[in-house]
Design a binder for these strands. Sequence first.
RNA 1: GGGAGCAUAGCUCAGUUGGUUUAGAGCAUCUGCCUUACAAGCAGAGGGUCCGCGGUUCGAACCCGUGUGCUCCCACCA
Length: 891
Amino acid sequence: MELTRNYEPGTTEERWNQTWQHKGYFKSVPDHRPSYTVVIPPPNVTGVLHMGHTLNETVQDILVRKARMSGFNACWVPGSDHASIATESKVVQMLKEKGIDKNSLTRDEFLKYAFEWKDKYGGIIYNQIEKLGCSVDWDRVTFTMDDHYYKAVIKVFIDLYNKGLIYRGARMINWDPAAKTALSDEEVEFKDLTGTLYYIKYALVDADENSAAANNQPTTDNYITIATQRPETIMGDTAICVNPADARFSHLKGKFAIVPLINRQIPIIFDEYVDTLFGTGALKVTPAHDINDYNLGLKHGLAVIDTLNPDGTLSEAAQIYVGEDRFTARKKIVEDLQEEGFISKQEEYQTRLGYSQRSGVVVEPRISTQWFVKMKEMAEPALTAVTSGEITIHPGDKFLATYKYWLENVKDWCISRQLWWGQQIPAWYAPDGSFVVAETREQAYIQFKIQNSKFKIETLTQDEDVLDTWFSSWLWPMEVFKGISEPEGNTEPDYYYPTAVLVTGQDIIFFWVARMIMAGMHYQKKRPFKDVYFTGMVRDKQGRKMSKSLGNSPDLLELIDKYGADAVRFGIMISSPAGNDLLFDEASLEQGRNFNNKLWNALKLVNMWQTRQADNGEAADNPSGNFAVDWFESRLNQAAADLDVMYSQFKLSEALKTIYSLIWDDFCSWYLEWVKPGFEQPIDAAIYQKTIAFFERLMQILHPFMPFITEEIYHLLLERLTDDDLCIKQFGNQYPVKKEILEQGELLKKVISAIRDARNKNQVKPKESILLSVLTQNKDNYTGFEKILAKQVNAHGLVYINSAPANNIVIAVETDKFYFESSREVDKSTLQTELEKDLERQRRFLESVAKKLSNERFMANARPDVVELEMKKQADALARIKAIEESLSSL
RNA sequence: GGGAGCAUAGCUCAGUUGGUUUAGAGCAUCUGCCUUACAAGCAGAGGGUCCGCGGUUCGAACCCGUGUGCUCCCACCA
């Protein structure tokens, strides 16, 4: 079969994807084998895979494929997340572009649009996952709003409510004025920026008389000045607070201040909370718009005046600039205050503002009635699971402390969202405002009847809100196997749960990882996964985050088109230190593509030999004897053992580097060159067979990382039968490693490189053949591979000598010396400089070793094997120095 | 403000309980090669004050202290 010049990934990948699917290799049903389960972190259903996903999915596929080839029943469950806010805002945007206002639609109409949108765009990520070569079980694809999943979420809500772990209450929450919904604390991102601190004067009055406010004029020239970043909230002020210990304000007891512009009278109150050193030492208290002020308000019984509408515009309660956006209003109010002389000072101020993770707008603290999950009780088992080592986090040192701290200080979780896209909260309200929690209207009605409520079932209304998207995804490892919705008669959860490993980004450790552990410990009484592997963030090569606005976020499918999926996988893995951020550079994909071609060309070489085999010994060109084969076998076995350790520690990047070097350097550059027969010569049949077997094993080892090309080459090596596929081929046991032969191999490589270097430096043309003379005390070291040595340095002959020949180029390796003549004048001065440099280095080394050995305390304290080693170092150095000196004198 | 992590070649990173480390790899760089698998390649080379300082030790890239510089997480100071 004629092979193309370079590997062409496109058609090959398409073909193998189809074959694997067709043969159902990635489908899993429970059987006698141990399970190895991975649940995909479900991407946003309407999103596309970015480089972060690519890294995560690749890591998962490597682990899953490795497990599948190691005797496990591997099951990788794909799926997607309905992503309530993110998706709903996309749908709202889409409707807007069509000229449809969400508010003009009924809930059902809106959901119809949303599901259409989901069906249209939800397939994109699945297509990308497949193109990347992910060996997922498509029969198990799960969406967090599937019917059974929806049911499970509702079931859990009701259960936790009945256990008293879910409650409804009015709290200060984070409000997203763009999405018009509550957010959890975790959905708020803080950004540092420079703001302005306005110093505003409030007039002081003596007594609570309406006259002051009524006639619009302060009755005194006295003012109290407060500092604020948010002048637009002054209309919501209900007090001014100072520290009781602050002598500057002690005379203000019982006095009142007048809110500028609206002239409302508010009391001066005293509380230790106020920092006397910050600003003016006086604080305006706006309970509706600041969490601290809210708490102060509660303590001092202050009124709450909410001056903002849900969309971030000023409300009627603000009295002025009603309907204007909060930031517009701020500008206008600052102008007004300035005009009327209420602003005494403005200064720049370093501050922090909370932004909505989803809509990007500044979050407003707002009091509203929401649903919460009590976290303390659920946090405890989740904490123990990790601290006890039941669940291992990789890399642990980095994240263990963070995880612990969060769980030890966890706050209640606000789970209601004022959206339509998601699981609607199963709470039902009677006309009098009382409510019950029940799955259906009928069940709710029954509950009300038990309470003797008297009204018609039709008048019941369901809570309008939906649940936080994480309130569904925290059930993911259980519910993909219907562990919540259908526990009876369902054997799958027992077989597949707990899952083996969770691979995800470190940014969702609280959103998702911690909560999955809570839910798993609560409902299955078992950890949801044994290991958690955190990948770093993918950045561009300058270290910047990838973002649409920077245009530095490459399109996955374009990359796959350009380089092939194997090369993309290679590129992202080779530059991906565990747990550290990854600087993405297309150069690494080029490296992956080049690696593909290297493999392809090795295949071409080996396949050329297929028709040129000689029967045992007869006329076969076997320059290496069995040395090359024995050496590579040990080298391969050694690497396989190293790889097992790396896999167990999730050091996948290092594992890939090991394989890359094993194939490129050891197999291609050394082994194949050693066994390669001369031009148009036949190859020894036994060596050919061994070479094929090595190549196959290499493909198997590489397969989890680069599945397509390895499968292709596996089949092309022997044009094997169609039912023998690499992706399900089981790894064998460990094979023996012969240490001595590995050492000999190292010596051979070293000698070859040294002689090639000498040829280079002496400008001996590559085509010019040499006669190599070897001066050694250990001839036996060389007899096994002297033919290889001669061939690799282009020597037409190799002779052993007892004394240095004149006028030769000399090379010292270890304690042995090598000589060859050059047709050119030998450049003695260069050679001499080299040797002298080496001699100097050896002498310095000897000195340091000798110093150690003459140190009594070293001899007394160091371990015997260490001392022995130092003695050997000394002997070696002495021998080498002698060899170099002899070489120098022979010049 | 509290906590965590990191600092090794031009870049990205390995470096296990302190002793085969005379500190490695990939990429990049330089030199020579169109050698009959591969120029997207082959052969070879150069390149480091292991962030600074101090300590422990017979011995430190590694342990301890300290300084500096980055990064991340958490936190309600207007």
